[in-house]
Amino acid sequence: MTLSLDRNIVYPDSDGKPMADNTRQFRWIVLFKENLECLFADNPNVFVAGDLLWYPVEGSPDIRVAPDVFVVFDRPKGDRGSYQQWKENNITPQVVFEILSPGNTYKEMVKKQQFYDKYGVEEYYIYDPDRNVLTGLERENGILTFIEDITDWISPRLGIRFVLTDDTLKVYYPDGQPFLTTIELTQKAQQEKLRADQAQLQVNRTQLENDRLRQLLLQAGINIPDDYN
């Protein structure tokens, strides 16, 4: 006999906890979330979320976690109040990021690791910006296992590269471009637009000069074919 689940079960969209404890933690969460969005902007079947509750088990609203950032392949983009896995072809988020703050406890992080291990996360990255410590785990033989050397690590799923320097963590796109903050991305876009405008201005100036020379030649009785370069 198959029991039907109570359709009145509520899966809250919020756990009542703040997204971040401080500006540094928030800045890193946004850095990962926004750049991963950019990385997969052209792929309609990669869903990237930040601070979204993930419910892996239907009928169990108490089994949940809100990763700082997670990535799900083979799921469409779009708004969600929470990630209810049974409504998502039962696909587990493959990659999870947590950014530590002074308020995170060892017990809390162990419980999260156990949760991600139990429910099938493939890659789990933890960055402590205050101590500049990066920890990574990947699934091997069905178990999340610590990555021994992560100083120049490339994510198997994402293709991004982590470089841990003496001062900070640097993350690079598969093409070698660095992850940038929203301000840096805006500045880069403005610079690229300025370069494009300058290039177009030069093209326009060249065309005007060519037209002027053509007129002078015509006045001198010299006809230049239109397709002459």
Results as ranks from 00 to 15, higher is better:
75 R>C: 12
195 R>C: 00
157 R>M: 15
164 L>K: 06
208 L>Y: 06
146 F>N: 09
115 F>Q: 04
171 V>A: 08
165 T>W: 13
205 R>K: 09
173 Y>T: 03
149 D>R: 01
104 N>P: 03
3 L>V: 11
60 S>N: 04
55 Y>W: 05
171 V>W: 14
204 N>H: 14
19 M>N: 13
149 D>N: 15
217 L>V: 07
151 T>E: 04
75 R>V: 09
28 W>Y: 14
226 D>R: 11
209 E>I: 10
175 D>W: 12
191 Q>F: 09
87 K>I: 01
229 N>S: 15
109 M>G: 00
46 V>D: 12
211 D>W: 06
187 Q>K: 12
100 L>H: 05
52 L>E: 01
101 S>A: 10
213 L>C: 08
191 Q>N: 05
92 T>M: 14
81 G>M: 07
47 F>D: 03
6 D>C: 07
181 T>M: 12
14 S>F: 06
175 D>I: 10
16 G>N: 09
212 R>I: 14
226 D>E: 10
65 V>W: 12
155 S>W: 06
133 V>S: 08
32 F>D: 04
199 A>K: 13
151 T>I: 12
30 V>N: 01
14 S>G: 04
11 Y>K: 01
83 Y>V: 09
199 A>V: 11
228 Y>Q: 13
38 C>G: 05
165 T>S: 15
122 E>G: 13
96 V>F: 08
165 T>M: 04
105 T>N: 00
111 K>V: 10
10 V>Y: 07
44 P>H: 13
203 V>P: 11
